[in-house]
Design a binder for these strands. Structure first.
Lengths: 347, 347
DNA sequence: ATCGAAATTTAAAACGTTTGCATTTTTGCA
DNA sequence: TGCAAAAATGCAAACGTTTTAAATTTCGAT
């Protein structure tokens, strides 16, 4: 029962016009008589005409697609922001009539090779690159190619400009410190990761800068590092800071997953949050609201960011601006119950 | 600095061969001398040749894409499974060299119109349709068009066959009942939704069937219905069943979000879970592990399902099987701490 | 009525592939 | 060495659109 799709030629024939005229009429060219335009649009709608994307792309060089390469993850690891991110991108794109292509990197292939394929096969007019590492071969490639892209995140340092949108983790971590300091905390812990991601520096530096700004020599900061995806090592690292003879009264975690582990291990060690220990995370993942006593964290509003990234990318594609577009989004504090005044007595 | 992309014609010229031969060599046709094939493949790799998708699609009629239309949601509602689902689809597709197109339905446009556009513009060779309602115009459309698709979920009843994969909610809810019955529960509550989704029937029917199978006339089931996305009404509904003079000892919720609300409201009402009340959910969302005391639920393994859906769809596209492909996935019980023996005394 | 400019429409090329069919080259055998 | 068959390669059309440049029609002013 496969229904055939109507083509421009057929539509033109039925209107007794040339393909050219119909094409232009549908594109709304002033050049075509208004009466004709209306007649064509009406007929197209009635016939349910939808232009063939491949043909259009081939001749115009514009696909109307934006690409995103899904990061490769282990069997049980799903990017926790993917849903929100993709939703936001979709929202941002659809208002400009663009759609999203999701290319997955197979286990053998590198993310870069998939990106290359997306770019060079002409499937997309631009790409979004997420989870930027300290140095990132993807950005180098895209820059060299001169292909439109927007990065979600930044390089540690680079000798070239590029379009990016990032969450202002430095500011958030400074804010976290100030809030905890004002609550009387002087001994801090930071749980960070060993993976070479730029954001770990930005956030840690933000924390360090706030400490320096305060200029109080009694402030102490212990830093502990865990591999990102190894739950066991993560627990071990958290306990190193938690079970020491002289533990911090406040722990800031690089992101919520780590903070939740801190809270779990604190409970296991018989510590009460926030009475004995304050914990602050970052990201505001769904579980943070439910994990007792409710994790205080920062919301990065991924969906909104993704929407802006889409807007930026479409601008880059359409206008090729001379200067790079950059945007730093300040996350908002979500004050729940995992932080409080520093305990009076120290053991 | 935009680097040009190499084309088949250029590659052919550099090899001093015709386009035809190069095209066939790359496709691995036996027809082309082995020596030539090797030479061409080698040169193509070295030149970084990537075939243009639009041109290939135009002539072959195959895009190598599978489409998914993102459900329209309110500003703060993101499909909680989208990330997992998309990851699974990607995994399933990439092994066959296919990629995913995500089309978003703008606020004005219906999901159906976006689907039509995806189908009729030739962007995709097949589509995945999720969140099937009791009756669903999307399936009717796809069937009429004869366009390859796989549904994630089922229609309430239909006069035609179609390809679907569904979670066996009926079985899970039967299992939940049996488990709770064996723990001594006789008075049950079901929290369900008012939205016209097929799965609410399947799950409720599964529960009812298990009750009937047991044949114990002392078993009682109270059902309460709430709108899906209205948190306030949801709380109100939950309290109707929780604060009644004669409340159930065990509540089964249609899915985890509802179960979490039940647990929150139970706590607010001074009830201890599972001592005073057993709660069981469905879906195993991330928060369920963290919400105290840990929600007992069923894991539907969305990612795995999505991978299978991808496989099914690619089969449908390639082989056009005569009989519909169907697949019922049994969810696995995730026994946490929200269920337990029925309380001895009744108020 | 005639002409030229403005308004409208059209023919044809191009985009980069795949593929049916024709052509050329090689091979095996007499 | 010649010739037919087999093997290998190439020509050209086609896919459905956009767009350049050209052709046609309309219209107002003389």
């Amino acid at each position: 029962m496969t229904t055939r799709v109507i083509t421009l030629k057929e539509l033109a024939a039925s209107l007794d016009l040339s393909i050219t005229t119909v094409s232009r009429a549908l594109a709304g060219h002033e050049q075509i008589a208004l009466k004709t335009r209306e007649r064509v649009v009406q007929a197209a709608r009635q016939a349910g005409y939808v232009p063939n994307t491949a043909a259009r792309t081939l001749v115009s060089g514009r696909s109307g697609f934006v690409g995103l390469v899904l990061p490769i993850r282990g069997p049980n690891l799903v990017d926790s922001f993917l849903g929100e991110f993709v939703t936001g991108l979709g929202e941002g794109l659809v208002s400009h009539g663009a759609d999203l292509i999701l290319a997955t990197a197979a286990l053998g292939h590198s993310e870069l090779s998939v990106l290359r394929h997306v770019v060079e096969s002409g499937r997309a007019d631009g790409v979004v690159v997420t989870r930027i590492a300290e140095t990132d071969e993807r950005l180098a490639y895209l820059r060299e190619r001169g292909f439109p892209f927007v990065a979600h995140g930044r390089l540690l340092d680079s000798d070239f400009g590029y379009n990016w949108l990032d969450t202002d983790g430095a500011h958030a971590f400074g804010e976290a410190f100030d809030m905890l300091y004002d609550l009387g905390h002087r001994h801090f812990g930071l749980v960070t990761i060993s993976e070479a991601m730029t954001f770990r520096h930005l956030r840690q530096d933000g924390l360090a800068a706030a400490i320096a700004r305060r200029g109080d020599p009694s402030v102490r900061l212990d830093v502990v590092t865990a591999p990102r995806f190894d739950q066991e090592a993560r627990i071990e690292a958290v306990n190193r800071i938690l079970r020491g003879p002289d533990r911090p009264t406040a722990i800031v975690a690089l992101f919520d997953e780590l903070a939740l582990t801190v809270m779990e291990e604190a409970a296991r060690a018989g510590l009460s949050v926030p009475r004995d220990l304050s914990v602050i995370g970052f990201d505001n993942i769904a579980a943070s609201a439910y994990a007792p006593p409710g994790l205080t964290t920062f919301d990065a509003s991924i969906r909104q960011c993704a929407r802006e990234i889409a807007d930026m990318l479409l601008t880059v594609i359409a206008e090729k601006p001379g200067k790079p577009l950059t945007r730093l989004i300040r996350p908002t504090l979500v004050a729940r119950a995992s932080h409080g005044p520093a305990p009076r007595t120290r053991s």
